[in-house]
């Protein structure tokens, strides 16, 4: 559980780093008043970035598990709320596994994880026709390292906006 929380935090931090460039600090010069510094805005509401950063696009699983944790459910609830707000969007839910399983079994396990996330979104009122799912098994790890922390990050269901987002 602690690993998952850490992993979530790590992913969120990574995502934040990747999506929000550091604002260039502006030094006051002399007595002249400079134009007001523009503070960085969050991602454009309704954009892919908005979904990824403000909502959270991955939920995480235990080893060889596909049941949704409390944290996973709350992320999926936020995803559902966002999808209700932007009804023209469509998503692909991809199930992923760590490397500590064999290839074909992991393709089946990833499919279960994708289905668990998809079914929960549908139970929250999202039209199943807007949600495609796929399994990448152990083929698309998020974290390349070979340790428990990486594996806990790599066991996930990843919701990607495939169309209808604000650009």
């Amino acid at each position: 559980m602690r690993n998952t929380v850490l992993a979530l935090a790590a992913v969120a931090a990574l995502a934040a780093c990747a999506s929000r460039p550091e604002p260039t600090p502006t030094q006051p010069t002399g007595g002249n008043t400079t134009p007001p510094v523009t503070t960085p805005q969050g991602p454009t509401p309704g954009s892919v970035e908005d979904f990824r950063v403000s909502v959270g696009d991955r939920v995480f699983f235990g080893y060889d598990r596909f049941d949704l944790s409390t944290e996973a459910r709350s992320v999926l609830e936020r995803q559902a709320a966002w999808l209700r707000r932007y009804p023209n969007t469509r998503v692909l839910v991809a199930g992923n596994c760590d490397e500590r399983g064999t290839r074909e079994y992991n393709l089946a396990l990833g499919a279960r994880r994708a289905a668990a996330a998809r079914d929960f979104l549908v139970s929250l009122g999202i039209d199943g026709g807007r949600i495609e799912s796929v399994s990448y098994g152990k083929e698309r790890p998020l974290d390349a390292r070979a340790n428990e922390e990486a594996w806990s990050v790599n066991r996930n269901a990843h919701t990607q906006i495939v169309s209808g987002a604000v650009s």
Binding site: F66, L107, A111, R112, R113, A114, D119, V134
Partner: peptide, 26 residues
């Protein structure tokens, strides 16, 4: 309708056995 994987030939070469996953049930 779902994803297909894990194929292998039948020993006579005229058939295939494989896995079909439909919404998380393989």
């Amino acid at each position: 309708p779902g994803m297909t994987f894990a194929p292998r030939f039948r020993p006579d070469g005229n058939g295939i056995v494989f896995t079909l996953d439909m919404n998380g049930n393989s």
